[in-house]
Each structure stands twice: as C-alpha cells, then as structure tokens.
Design a protein around this nucleic acid. Structure first.
Lengths: 127, 127
DNA sequence: AAACTAGTACGATAGACCTCGTACTACGGC
DNA sequence: GCCGTAGTACGAGGTCTATCGTACTAGTTT
C-alpha cells in the first residue's frame, strides 16, 4: 500500500524481516527456561563456543555429533528460551548470544554458567 | 572382620548410616545435572528457601502444591544432582544446600542462580 | 501396644524431550 | 535454469519427567 511518491525502502532494512524468526522479548525470558536450555550438554557447548567467539556464528560451523534436524532442534530451544538470537543471512542462519538482555535480566548468571562449564571441561580433560 | 580385641565402634558414628541416602561425591557432580535440577520451578523454589534459611529444613516444612510422592521425587532429584544433602533425623528428613561442594566446584554459580531467581520473583510480583 | 506423623515404594499415566530419516524450501553460484 | 549448500518441517521411536494414588515403613507419642 505504498503511495506513488514514496521512496523505496532502504535496501539494508527490509531484507532483515523477510524471513524473521520468533524470539521472546526480554521481559518474556524465564530463568527456568534458560536453565533448562543450558542443561543439555550439546546446547551448553554451543553457548560456550558462541560466548568464546564473541560474534555471530552459523549453525553449520559447530559440527555437532548429531543430525541436521537435531541441530536445528537444539538451536530452536536456545532461541525460544531467549538465550540466542538467530537471523538469516543468505543461506546461513547466524546465531548470537543475547548477552545484553541476559545480563540486564540476570546479571552475572551467564558468566557464572560459562565459567562453570569451562571449569568442568578443564577438570574432565585433566582428570 | 573385626578381631576379638578391637573396640566396638563409637555409638555416635554408626547410627548415622543406619538409613543413609546415596549422594554423589563432589567430583561426580555435573553442571548439566545442577542446571536441570534447578530448571524446575518447584525445585528452584525449594533451593531458594533452603539458601535463605541457611540451615537444614525438613521436607514437610515446604508446603508445596503437589502430593507427598511428588515432593519426595523433587527432593530426590535435587539430592541425586548433588544440590542438596539429605539426612534422616527421627521421622523427619532434613535437607541442606551443599554450598561447600557447589562453591568449590563452580564458584559463584549458585549465588548467581539464586540472585536471578530473586530478581525474577521480584519482577513477577511487582509487574 | 496403638495411634500418629513423615516420608517411601510402586505402578500408572500423560506429556515433554532427544533423536532420527525423509522430503522439502530458500538462497547462491555456475 | 540447474545444481549445491544450509537449514526446515513433519512424523515416528524411545526415553525421561512430573504427577498422582494407594499401600507401606520407620520413628514418635501416648
């Protein structure tokens, strides 16, 4: 319903929501949901890698020991819990930790869990 | 295999394990297990109350909105995950947060989760 | 010994969860 | 337009989870 004199939308903006994915807004994020999402070894590993990277990573660069559909499932759980933000970029689906929202809602929580995961990994490797 | 000249075990010790409950030793406690145990609203509530009390509490003083058998189930999950320590005292079964072990294994983790739980509770009550 | 209290054990049920394979869609490059 | 790559959708299987009720055990109290 654009009038004849309106400009075309800027090319950088509308491409973003052509295939938008549903995310909970900050206020909808529940602690129980976060803890449940992180209680799976694979998902904990994903989040650790994501935090370590400090930038968007595609689903495919994780090389998890499960099928593609299972991988999709785990990323969806993380997104629906509000732990990660997902956007399409071409054929890839990029994933990003929602640090801003999580740290605002629950200061220190994610860092503690990530630290705990790192400690456990070190303990397992060394022991 | 006690020899004829050995003394009887002290009476204060053996009474303790007459009805001992299986607990994971510190090294067996897994982060995923903790997070899973705390991802249930009822169990998170139990642990919050326990931390707040700072002392042993019996199962019955929690007054949870579920049946007795379900209550038993939740406390067992917490014990098997290594989150709480349980001992019998007469007819009561006392519960205690395993702060020492948890803080040693994963410093700051429990405090962060408890803080997060408190924030969420405050947010829900106020909002 | 009888009654009461606290919690367990067991079996059942319903729902959630992890996993998979197959068939499909969307985008990018040739 | 065609093919390859990235990921989805759907349905199914098997396991795990939360819940319950009923019947039971172990102390405590009277």
């Amino acid at each position: 319903m654009r009038g004849p004199y309106e400009v075309e939308p800027a090319v950088t903006v509308p491409a973003a929501d052509s295939r938008a994915l549903p995310h909970p807004v900050r206020e909808e994020i529940r602690l129980e949901g976060i803890l449940h999402a992180l209680s799976d070894p694979l998902r904990l590993q994903i989040v650790s890698r994501l935090a370590e990277a400090g930038q968007e990573l595609s689903c495919s660069c994780f090389d998890l020991p499960v099928s593609k559909s299972t991988t999709t499932h785990h990323f969806r759980v993380l997104r629906e819990a509000g732990v990660v933000r997902q956007v399409y970029r071409g054929t890839a689906k990029m994933n990003d930790l929602r640090r801003d929202d999580l740290d605002t809602l629950f200061p220190g929580l994610i860092d503690s869990v990530l630290d705990a995961a790192a400690r456990q990994a070190a303990r397992t490797a060394t022991g």
